[in-house]
Amino acid sequence: MNFLSVLISGLGAGATYAIIAIGYTMVYGIAKMLNFAHGDIIMVGGYAMFVTLALVGHPVAAVAAAILAAVLVCVLMGVSVERFAYKPLRGASPLAVLITAIGVSYLLQSLAQIIFGSASKMLSGLQIAGHVMLGTLRINYVTLVTLAVTVVLMVALTLFIKYSKTGRAMVAVSEDRDAALLMGINTNAIIAITFAIGSALAAIAAYLMLAKGASLANTLGAMPGIKAFTAAVIGGIGSLPGAVLGGILLGVVESLSYSIPALAPFTDAVEFGILIVILLVKPAGLLGKARREKV
């Protein structure tokens, strides 16, 4: 029974990683860049919720307003980062884009610290307390909410990409940007939409993290961002199901590692160790397709 509860809490953590990893993987698939600042968009969402909670009085309305505000602010932030920092570098070497992304991540973190101070904050208004008992098995409500939100988002996103015109254009751009441009697809708009979707998911992830009781600081998104990124690479970067699989896998491993006393202090090392092992065995990630570079 104990193992089962560890597994379930791992699923909850993994679902949050999966939502963040989808943002990484979509941007990688379509803009062909690693958006290092994605984790810090989560942090921006967290502060957006903090400000809204302070402004709105009614407790239930405040939560709804906070999520809405976070999504809006994150989308705005993600799209403007793309517009001002990454778009000028389209066509430049990948190294240049990567370094700029690191710069943006630094910029967001330090701006947040300047505006809100370095002391971390607890947002008790967002937290979801309580649990249900299934026999002797204890399941927190927040885990259930996280899993439900993840499933709904996954289904919605898959349907959107498969059946909507924009979604199909996104697939086309990720396959071959130049050919898509020739077919009359506005690639710049598609890239901006991708950033918007990724950032909206980051806002949701911020809510789920704070609902679980994470304290809000300017580094809120840094570590989860890096881990979700690892998850995306494990699952095969560019692949949507891969991101989910990688996220869940990482969450479960993390939870298991925490539950073993001898391994608990080395949890981070175990997680990143898995990445290195998987890259050794399956360089394209679990569900990624190995692609030959063409001249």
Partner: peptide
């Protein structure tokens, strides 16, 4: 204290501006 973060902000801006200046095809 909180002023130390200005240094980090400064690095971030240097990093972004230099890379864009050096690499942007449009520039």
């Amino acid at each position: 204290g909180n002023l130390a973060v200005l240094q980090k902000l400064f690095y971030a801006i240097i990093l972004i501006l230099i890379v864009i200046y050096k690499n942007a095809p449009g520039l």
